[in-house]
């Protein structure tokens, strides 16, 4: 899978649980540091998948770990810790996206030549898209930036990163119905925007 943000098996779960107990019971800072070292790749993978500004990435990671330690008392050992922190990271990214707001409506004048060609090929001759992947990536990014943060995250995970609905459910904590509804609405919007732009080509 492209950009798997939740690498499995890097650190045995037993170690993670031992560090969690050491932090919760003794406020052992060495255990907290070990937890951050072990979970950092998972957290950063999720943040970078949302393609945030490099300057913001570290701030978001810091916020994620602060929330993680604040909520750690509520974590149940039956749930995998990596999934739990992944959900916190995803929701923190969503908060950031909500705060940043959506981009304004996309106009034909906003597209580069490559993007306009990719749009035309998508609408008329999809077989030509194989030679226009760069323009396709940029056009997809511009279109995704116009969606709501929730829709954008769902579509990025499903359509661009190739995740399954179950994975999206695990990462966001949303129900499968909510995910399907968001994906449906988002794809309908994207299709309409593309057709509207295509009419002006």
């Amino acid at each position: 899978m492209a950009g798997d943000a939740v690498p499995q098996g890097e650190q045995p779960d037993g170690d993670l649980k031992r560090w969690v107990r050491a932090w919760l019971q003794e406020r052992d800072e060495a255990a907290a540091r070990a937890l951050m070292d072990a979970l950092y790749p998972t957290v950063m993978g999720i943040i970078r998948a949302r393609r945030m500004d490099a300057a913001v990435e570290q701030d978001v990671a810091q916020e994620v770990f602060i929330k993680f330690f604040e909520k750690l008392g509520a974590w149940r050992e039956s749930a995998p810790l990596r999934h739990w922190v992944a959900r916190i990271a995803t929701n923190q990214c969503l908060d950031r996206l909500r705060a940043a707001g959506r981009a304004r409506e996309l106009r034909l004048a906003d597209l580069t030549e490559d993007e306009a060609r990719a749009l035309e090929s998508s609408l008329e001759a999809p077989e030509r898209l194989a030679d226009e992947e760069t323009g396709a990536v940029e056009l997809a990014r511009k279109l995704l930036a116009r969606l709501t943060p929730e829709e954008r995250v769902v579509i990025e995970m499903l359509d661009m990163e190739g995740r399954t609905a179950t994975e999206v459910q695990r990462l966001t904590g949303w129900s499968s119905v909510a995910i399907r509804v968001r994906a449906f609405r988002a794809r309908r919007k994207l299709r309409q925007w593309m057709q509207r732009l295509g009419d002006k080509l």
Binding site: Y40, L119, L129, A136, L139, L143, Q195
Partner: peptide
């Protein structure tokens, strides 16, 4: 058209940079 575009874009969609420490 979105299906076609996303399929093409996915092939070049950048993977997140690995984060070590």
């Amino acid at each position: 058209p979105w299906k076609e575009l996303s399929a093409a874009a996915r092939r070049r969609w950048p993977s997140p940079l690995p984060a070590g420490e």
